[in-house]
């Protein structure tokens, strides 16, 4: 037998022996989705099958954070049997790419541990930028603007903004694109420290239910500079 043939046979043997050991096989070990804005959770189903000829025991399933739960219907998987691990990501007020893992331990000697990855790109229902407007003490009390932008796929026609302190007035204007609003906030004066919550409620057609978003407006306290030591005059000679 020629050398290249031997090498190829050896490599093929290695590959075949590796595949034969992989008994619990997963359809996908990484799942990704973009839940609709405002969704409370995202559910991921990881499908598996025991392709070996011996039963497999799933001894432990654990998640990378408390915001994710993983459910398994049964721990023992007979040869040829299919099943799934359902992982649920609680979205809460999370935003952007959420990447979590589920670790599965089995008695499969070839692959005792599998790490499943779930990714969710969470779009906020309403994005506020910035979430805070503030004025330094005695700063010119000019209006400052918060841009409120509806999340992708959300239709929003109007916003209602209420300040918790009457010293701040708010005015809502349409923004540069559909679903965008400018909230202009003005303090009555900046001579005194002020704090206010600005409650922002999208119109009912947007589908946010009773959800209210909050921005903050503040006039910062006057910071007194540290006392400077009195100048010392050198005694005259």
């Amino acid at each position: 037998m020629h050398l290249p043939t031997k090498v190829l046979l050896g490599a093929a043997f290695l590959c075949v022996s590796t595949v034969a050991q992989a008994e619990l096989t997963w359809e996908k070990i990484e799942l990704e989705q973009s839940p609709p804005p405002g969704a409370e959770s995202a559910v991921f189903a990881f499908q598996y099958q025991n392709k070996g000829d011996k039963p497999i025991h799933i001894s432990n399933v654990r998640t990378s954070c408390g915001c994710t739960t993983a459910a398994l219907k049964k721990n023992d998987v007979a040869p040829g049997e299919k099943g799934e691990i359902v992982a649920t990501l609680k979205i809460g007020d999370h935003s952007g790419l959420q990447q979590k893992t589920v670790t599965v331990d089995t008695d499969d000697t070839a692959h005792p541990q599998t790490i499943l990855t779930l990714k969710a790109t969470v779009t906020q229902f309403l994005e506020l930028q910035p979430a805070l407007v503030y004025w330094q003490a005695n700063e010119d009390p000019k209006p400052k603007t918060i841009v409120a932008k509806a999340g992708k796929g959300v239709t929003m026609k109007s916003l209602e903004v209420t300040s918790s302190a009457p010293e701040f007035t708010t005015k809502v204007e349409p923004g540069s694109t559909a679903g965008e609003f400018k909230i202009n906030v003005t303090p009555r004066d900046t001579a005194h420290q002020l704090n206010a919550n600005l409650s922002i409620k999208p119109d009912s057609a947007a589908g946010a239910g009773t959800k209210v978003f909050t921005a903050t407006a503040r006039v910062m306290p006057l910071v007194m500079p540290p006392p400077t030591p009195a100048p010392t005059t050198a005694p005259k000679a």
């Binding site: 915001c67 809460g92 007020d93 999370h94 935003s95 979430a131 978003f213 909050t214 903050t216 503040r218």
Partner: peptide, 12 residues
């Protein structure tokens, strides 16, 4: 981030 919309205004 679990309670971002509630905790952020408190912090600010």
């Amino acid at each position: 981030e679990d309670r971002w919309n509630e905790l952020l205004p408190q912090f600010l």
